[in-house]
Amino acid sequence: MIGRLPLDEQLTVLKSVLSRNEVLLEVLHRTAALDLPGWYVTAGCLFQTVWNVVTDRRPTSGIKDYDVFYFDRRDLSWEAEDAVIKTADEAFAGLPVEVEVRNEARVHLWYEQKFGVACAPYTSTEAAIDGFAATTCCLGVRLEQGGRWRVYAPHGLSDVFDLVVRPNPVLAPQEVYETKTARWRWQWPELTVLDWPSRPAIPTPSSS
């Protein structure tokens, strides 16, 4: 199994597998040209490409969109982020997919309204990736000078290659995890989806 390979070999295999998704490669190269601070292409377009290759599907099968995170706290206004989004829309014109670009320095301004739980301000793009609902989702890739791939994978790559989805109850509520995994199970029935952890029971006082 690929997930049992040494980590350096897993990274080599990851690059090889992701390179089979030509749309992803184009997104990576076009994003690099935008020179956004702290950027990564992240989330579903990465681990779902791996799932597709491992299960002998087309590399792009079932991928809804391509997420680009960046981090810029110099101006937290919506107008500043919207200007970047519009520039990115021009850069990604002609691609047969939706590319969603977001400034992770602004997430705390809207997260509670959307998901019902508060989100402390992130300190980096990596910190934002750490907060995904599943540890399997915590993956980011970018191209650096000379074409070197930078891979951020705080929970490793074994689960990604082994088709295991593991909950990450640090921010996103259980409903988000279960909604996402229900769609993923339908698209990739080979997945092993682990249950959201139950809350520990509150001990009751013993009678004397």
Rank of each mutant, 00 (worst) to 15 (best):
L109P: 07
L95N: 07
R106P: 07
T125F: 05
A127K: 13
G116Q: 13
H108C: 02
P121T: 06
E112I: 11
A118E: 07
F115E: 11
Q113A: 14
L109N: 09
Q113F: 00
N103A: 03
E90N: 01
P121L: 06
I85A: 10
A120I: 02
A127L: 11
V101P: 01
L109K: 12
E104N: 15
D89E: 15
V117L: 08
T123R: 15
E98L: 10
P121Y: 08
V117F: 07
A105D: 03
A127R: 14
N103E: 03
T123G: 15
T123H: 12
V107Y: 12
T125C: 12
V117E: 11
A120Y: 01
T125M: 08
E126K: 15
R102L: 03
K114S: 11
I85P: 01
A118L: 03
A120S: 12
F115V: 10
V97N: 10
A93Q: 15
H108V: 01
A127Q: 14
G94D: 13
L95M: 02
A120M: 04
C119W: 03
E126H: 10
E100L: 11
A118F: 03
V101T: 12
V117I: 13
V99Q: 02
K114C: 07
V117M: 06
D89K: 12
E104A: 09
T123L: 11
V117G: 06
N103K: 01
T125H: 07
K86P: 00
S124Q: 10
R106A: 08
V117K: 11
Y122V: 01
A91D: 07
A88D: 08
Y111P: 06
G94T: 09
N103W: 03
